[in-house]
Design a protein around this nucleic acid. Structure first.
Length: 508
RNA sequence: CGGGGAGUGGCGCAGCCUGGUAGCGCAUCUGGUUUGGGACCAGAGGGUCGCAAGUUCGAAUCUUGUCUCCCCGACCA
């Protein structure tokens, strides 16, 4: 069967992923290492994510604000673990002016060297901590709940579009609380918000759980994540929420006077999701014809493609399409009016159709002169593109019938995408594995999914040994699912009594 | 950052070994023929071959440097 892409997922998943990004006009290279240009269709998806996520954040009483891109180097030196975690991948600003160099061109002016270098934020705990120390004086100032939508920079050694780029877009929530219990409640609230968001608007099933000790955010007391399973069986960390204890509060001086008049350090949290989510959506829902964009985050949910012939009949077709669009705009799905595009671009209808197939528009509607005469529309669902015979499953539907059914169709597509991915996740977590090496076979191309084992959660050398053992098989621990079944056995690695269940898999 | 591969019209590639200033397919444009569906025929436009030095009468081709991308590794909230 002929597909819109030249590489299938089966043939080469990595090459397929890149082809989806380029063929769906999501993003392209920028000429700067690890940085990408996010094109309108890709950015439109991000805007949908922002809009829906922002509403959830605000619903939780968290307020938006904005902190500077540049952070004084000294801020980073305050929290030791934080330094260790990020020092290796920091972009540093050392000069503020350019002058003509001896060989022509421009060089940083040696005279303009900064007294104290500035780092480009890799995350904002330190600057926000400094502000919080000013804002928090009394127990009455807590909890303090802020969030920012921003770009951050981490000088990554190896980059992949959306999944790991040197610069990326994200939201980072930062909160300060009077005590551990309150901060933990917030940490878990954010985690649940991410789970619901991934499984709702993104139709991407995830497992929420706690990261093992060695996978924690630098400086965190506890790190939680949502992990999604990609179509090649690898895990993608799609969101994180951290309980930071009082470490950052101590480093930044976030103190408050409690009801008894004593000075106390606040307990802080931070949590974020990034443009990586788009990579997750691609690898969760994409097929050999490109992206399949979940309707809730699709910039356009219905795209109308008029079949114009450059003759007198065109006016009637366009007129029919405009009216169809207006009727669709009056419909609502997911609590919002439908987003409908009439694609009047001067291109061949068939090319436009395939372009929207590759971009993953959930519903593509073609309208030709005969449809106008018959009062119909040729409807194509992106989640069910082909009939059994390999031909496009275009449904010639009476126009009124389609308009009335459009919203339900979108919700059905959303549900279908989720159900498909959910079935894949559920059926590919093995819980009876005895030999990891045999299960994963060492072959990247083989879909092996994840393995859940019970373990004793050793620390120190005991943990290091296990991590190395897994590393030899190219495996990592993902998280300990918060809703896992209770333990009833011994540690997979050590034979000691188990204390929790943990997921193991290959990862991005 | 280490090892390997690659950069030639919008996209995918050939040419490079054996230097003589570029070619193919798709896409694009024009004309014609088609018209329920990823059309056909004919013609045309578009690239100083990632960038910079060097060797040479002459460099896409040889040498060196550099940037970017891909794969493996190390690293990675």
């Amino acid at each position: 069967m002929k597909h819109a892409l030249s590489v299938t997922r089966q043939q080469n998943f990595a090459a397929w992923y890149q082809e989806v990004i380029s063929e769906a006009d999501l993003a392209e290279e920028s000429g700067v290492r690890g940085c990408m240009v996010i094109r309108p269709w890709g950015y439109g998806i991000w805007e949908r994510i922002q809009k829906l996520m922002d509403a959830e954040i605000k619903k939780a009483g968290v307020e938006n604000c904005y902190f500077p891109l540049f952070i004084p180097l000294s801020f980073f030196e305050k929290e030791a673990d934080h330094v260790d975690g990020f020092a290796k991948e920091m972009a540093v600003v050392t000069h503020h002016r350019l002058v003509k160099g001896p060989k022509g061109g421009l060089i940083p002016d040696p005279e303009s060297k900064l007294e104290e270098p500035l780092v480009v934020r890799p995350t904002s705990e330190t600057v926000i901590g400094a502000a919080m120390s000013r804002w928090v004086q009394s127990w009455r100032d807590l909890p303090l709940l802020v969030n920012q939508w921003a770009n951050v920079v981490r000088w990554e050694m190896r980059t992949r579009m959306f999944l790991r780029t040197s610069e990326f877009l994200w939201q980072e929530g930062h909160t300060a609380h009077a005590d551990r219990a309150d901060a933990m409640t917030e940490t878990m609230r954010a985690l649940e918000m991410y789970r619901a968001f991934a499984e709702g608007p993104l139709a991407m099933p995830v497992v929420a759980g706690e990261k093992p000790e060695h996978e924690r955010f630098p400086g965190a007391v506890a790190t939680y994540s949502i992990e999604a399973m990609m179509q090649d069986g690898k895990a993608l960390q799609a969101g994180t929420s951290h309980y930071l204890g009082t470490g950052f509060a101590e480093a930044s001086g976030i103190k408050y006077q409690d009801k008894e008049g004593a000075q106390q350090f606040a307990h802080t949290t931070s949590w974020g999701v990034s443009t990586r989510l788009i990579g997750g959506v691609i690898m969760t829902h994409g097929d050999d014809d490109g992206l399949r964009c979940p309707p809730e985050i699709a910039p356009w949910q219905v795209v109308i493609v008029p079949m114009l012939r450059d003759d007198d009949g065109d006016a009637a077709v366009l007129d029919y399409c405009r009216n169809l669009r207006l009727e669709l705009l009056a419909q609502r799905a997911f609590g919002e009016p439908l987003r409908v595009l009439l694609d009047t671009k001067a291109a061949k209808a068939s090319n436009k159709r395939w372009s929207w197939v590759k971009k993953g528009a959930p519903v593509i509607v073609e309208v030709g002169p005969r449809d106008v005469a018959d009062g119909k529309a040729a409807v194509l669902r992106r989640d069910r593109l082909y009939k059994d015979d390999g031909k496009l499953a275009t449904a010639f539907t009476p126009r009124d019938e389609f308009v009335a059914a459009a919203a339900a169709m979108l919700q059905d597509i959303q549900a279908n995408l989720y159900a498909e991915a959910k079935a894949r996740l559920d059926s590919n977590i093995a819980r009876d594995v005895i030999d990891l090496a045999a299960h994963f076979k060492g072959d990247d191309a083989k879909f092996a999914g994840w393995v859940e084992v019970q373990w004793a959660r050793p620390t120190g050398d005991g943990l290091t040994k296990i991590v190395e053992q897994l590393k030899a098989l190219k495996l990592t621990m993902r998280n300990a699912p918060i809703n896992a079944a209770p333990v009833d056995g011994v540690c997979f690695f050590t034979g000691a009594p188990a204390v929790e269940r943990i997921l193991i898999g290959r990862t991005y």
